[in-house]
Amino acid sequence: MRKIIESTFVTVDGVISSPQEWCSPYWDAEHSDYAGKLLVSSDALLLGRVTYQSFAEVWPTRSGDAYTDRINSMPKYVASTTLKEAGAWNGTLLQGDVATAVAELKRQPGEAILKFGTGELDRTLISNRLIDEFHFWTFPCVAGGGDRLLDGLDLTHLDLLETTRFKSGIVVNTYGLK
């Protein structure tokens, strides 16, 4: 069975919005290597509408390195109640009940499915126990305001599976659902 792995950037104060404003000073080779390993261990992406649309505006305009070429060529499964289609940028709109569709994706042969972005889709995936690993990249900064990580979810207990520290101060805590 395939795993769903969520990879999310977060500040020390729990903010996930506007990472372009706070994450770039910490981006280095160590960070890129970890991100590349996550991407290479996966053969598809799972995205909510907001993340899919923002990524689809930027990533197809890039090329020339292994990470970019891989992310652009991978199939993307998109959860949305408002999009009519997601055919651009190798997208496939999940049909019907999202939890059922994602559970079916997990049963298909293949590598892990990497999920970027944290939002409404997480409520469904967590309540249906469909996320196998969370990789929360905690950046050593305080945003002071913005959308918070997993805000509005019911109490959910996690198991710490691994901690990875970077020289830049980023700490990636990998969790599974209890």
Rank of each mutant, 00 (worst) to 15 (best):
F55S: 00
S41N: 12
A29R: 09
D69L: 01
S63P: 06
W59R: 07
L47C: 06
S54D: 11
R49N: 01
S42V: 03
H31D: 15
T51P: 02
E21W: 14
L93W: 02
D13R: 06
L93G: 05
Y77E: 03
V12T: 15
F55M: 13
K37A: 15
L38K: 11
R49D: 01
W27H: 13
T82G: 05
R49K: 10
G91V: 06
E57Y: 00
A79P: 07
P60V: 09
F55W: 14
L39S: 13
T81W: 12
L38M: 13
G48Q: 02
T61A: 10
L47W: 01
V50F: 11
A35F: 14
L45K: 05
S17C: 06
G87I: 04
A86F: 00
R49Q: 13
R62P: 09
D65Y: 02
R62E: 09
A88S: 12
T82N: 03
D13H: 03
I16M: 05
V15C: 05
R49S: 10
S24V: 12
V50T: 12
P25C: 09
Q53L: 14
Y26C: 09
W27D: 14
V78K: 00
D65I: 07
S63D: 13
T81S: 14
V40W: 01
R70G: 02
W89Q: 00
Y34T: 11
K37L: 12
V12A: 15
G91D: 10
R62L: 14
W22G: 12
T81Y: 13
Q53T: 12
L39V: 15
P19A: 10
N90I: 05
V40D: 06
S32P: 04
D69Q: 07
W59C: 10
V12E: 05
L39K: 05
A66N: 08
V50Q: 05
T68S: 06
W22D: 11
D65S: 13
G14S: 12
V10S: 07
G91S: 03
P60K: 08
A56C: 04
E57L: 09
G91K: 00
F55H: 04
G36P: 00
D69M: 01
T92V: 14
V40N: 04
S24N: 09
S54C: 02
